[in-house]
Design a protein around this nucleic acid. Structure first.
Lengths: 131, 131
DNA sequence: ATTTAATGTGAGAAAACCTAACATGTTATT
DNA sequence: AATAACATGTTAGGTTTTCTCACATTAAAT
């Protein structure tokens, strides 16, 4: 788990917000969880709390569903794409990075990106909103 | 209005999450709102929804309060700092935490994921976590 | 000793979310 | 065409979270 992992996996959003961000119904989101495509955290009182990773994943699921892929297929695909993203993550791949390398990386992360309209959210977009 | 305004002003977080992120009680947060130091959005059902800007602001308020400044003073200061942050280049902005300090913090986070010490969070830091 | 400022606490109400069950609309299969 | 499987809608009843409002408490200033 790299440095950015911490933020991206922080359970922050209630389902109501996620519904808006991903444009999905509560029923859909819970259904995907039922099929183990996502595993949002829970509060002490059992309310779901979603991370940015969860939301990105939901956008991916939505995308794949629209391509006619079913739960089983999506599950397989997501399992692969997750493995890939871990291998591709520069921080995760080089945990023994020198201080200067890490410093350079962090500076790059601090750069401000441009604006994006929320209504046109697609899989992967969220990672550009939040880092 | 800068490009990043859209994301940073998006009402996303319920008060429960903000309490954890800023390490403040609900009472404190509502009190600051009562004194117009923050103006979180509301759901249709009247629940507060905080943006990243709101949370940064809360961290600033906390900071200023610890310095012994009262509501009135903080209000004035925040009015100024807001104006400045709009006019100032966000990248060139002088950090409250040096890059070295941030790097050290992030390293610690990488070693124990999910165990970010909230107390180490200060005003403005959040904008580096989320973009 | 008061007053003021910031925060704690509790009550009662409402919103948001939970699970579970059943219903509906599609698509695939027989 | 009938049936089955899949994804989603809907409703019901219950729990958690948040709301406002009021009163209490603590610490600092007068």
């Amino acid at each position: 788990m790299g440095g950015s992992e911490i933020r991206r996996t922080m359970p922050l959003f209630p389902i109501g917000i996620v519904m808006q961000l991903a444009d999905l119904s509560a029923r859909q989101i819970r259904y995907y969880e039922e099929h183990e495509l996502i595993s949002p955290a829970r509060t002490e009182g059992n309310r779901r709390l979603f991370s940015l990773n969860d939301i990105d994943r939901l956008l991916e699921i939505k995308d794949l569903l629209e391509q006619g892929i079913n739960m089983a297929g999506i599950k397989k695909i997501l399992a692969v794409s997750q493995k890939e993203s871990v291998e591709r993550d520069p921080v995760a791949k080089k945990p023994e990075m020198t201080d200067d390398e890490l410093r350079t990386l962090l500076k790059k992360e601090m750069l401000s990106p441009g604006k994006i309209s929320r209504s046109s959210l697609r899989a992967g977009d969220l990672s550009r909103f939040f880092r």
